[in-house]
Amino acid sequence: MASTSYRTRVIVKEHTDKQADFAGTYNLLVAAKSVPSPASPPNTVESTTMEDDQQTFEKGIKTSDSREITGNLEKEYLSKVDGYGDKKLDIIHLYGTDGIGGVAKYAYVGTATATPNDVGGNDEILEMTVTVIPSTASELVTDKLTVVDNNDGTFTVTVVG
């Protein structure tokens, strides 16, 4: 069954080297208006020779560019992200209308910075962008993690099993 983008979320907590399983208490990164994919397709590496009558390719490595998450400019989120500074964060993208990743969950470690967006004119909603720079590859963790929305702005993430 197809799902809408309603309640797609990105949640974060400060990373600790002692705990690499992504369990813990998370906060909403920003009330998002747009969320980029946490995973990217692999590069293609051309393997064509002079003997081939058509180009051929091999699967290359995946790229891992920064990701820009857009939301309304709200002091709470701007201050929270600014407070992380250069600290490493555990980051989880939650997909599904249940708001807890019922369709898909991706987890990775990275850093985040927030900046107000340009203002284009009168009568606009002010926006901000949170730029996430991944330092590990994203991992599909849909069946490995359980997420509970505590309904107070926090989320409890536990490892299945």
Rank of each mutant, 00 (worst) to 15 (best):
F155C: 04
A31W: 06
G71T: 06
P36K: 00
L145V: 05
H93N: 00
A112V: 03
S34N: 14
P38W: 02
E76G: 10
D152K: 10
M128T: 13
V148I: 01
S40L: 10
L140G: 01
H93P: 02
A2Y: 15
G120T: 09
A104K: 06
T129V: 07
T70K: 04
D86Y: 02
D53G: 08
S3A: 10
G110I: 02
G120L: 04
E124A: 13
Y77G: 12
G71M: 01
I91P: 15
I69T: 03
E124V: 11
V10F: 15
I125S: 15
V147S: 06
D143M: 05
Y106Q: 06
I91W: 08
T136Q: 11
V130I: 11
S79A: 15
G24D: 02
T115W: 11
V119F: 10
A107Q: 07
G161D: 11
T63G: 12
Y6N: 08
E14T: 05
S79D: 15
K75A: 04
E46H: 03
V160P: 15
G101N: 01
T70Q: 09
Y77C: 01
A23I: 01
T49W: 14
M128I: 08
L29D: 04
P134D: 10
K88Q: 14
G24N: 03
M128Q: 09
G101S: 07
K59N: 11
D118M: 10
S40R: 09
T16N: 14
V10Q: 06
T131N: 12
D152Q: 03
K87A: 08
E14L: 04
N72M: 09
L140F: 04
D98A: 00
D123G: 15
V130G: 03
G153M: 08
V30N: 01
G121F: 12
V130M: 02
G161L: 01
A137G: 14
V81P: 15
Y84G: 12
K144V: 00
I91M: 03
I92T: 00
K144A: 14
G102C: 03
E46L: 06
R9F: 09
K18D: 14
A23S: 14
G153C: 05
A20W: 08
T129I: 04
T154S: 04
S135M: 13
K13C: 08
T146I: 01
A2C: 14
I91H: 12
T44I: 00
K33C: 05
S66C: 07
Q54L: 01
D123Y: 10
T146M: 01
A104C: 05
E76Q: 14
V159M: 01
M128C: 02
V148K: 11
T63Q: 14
V30K: 02
V119C: 02
S138A: 12
N117M: 13
D82M: 06
I69D: 08
T154A: 00
A112P: 15
S64T: 02
D149L: 08
T111A: 05
G121I: 05
T129Y: 04
V160L: 01
G96S: 11
V109F: 13
S34R: 08
G161R: 05
A39R: 04
E124L: 12
T4Y: 15
I69V: 13
I91R: 11
S37E: 08
V130H: 02
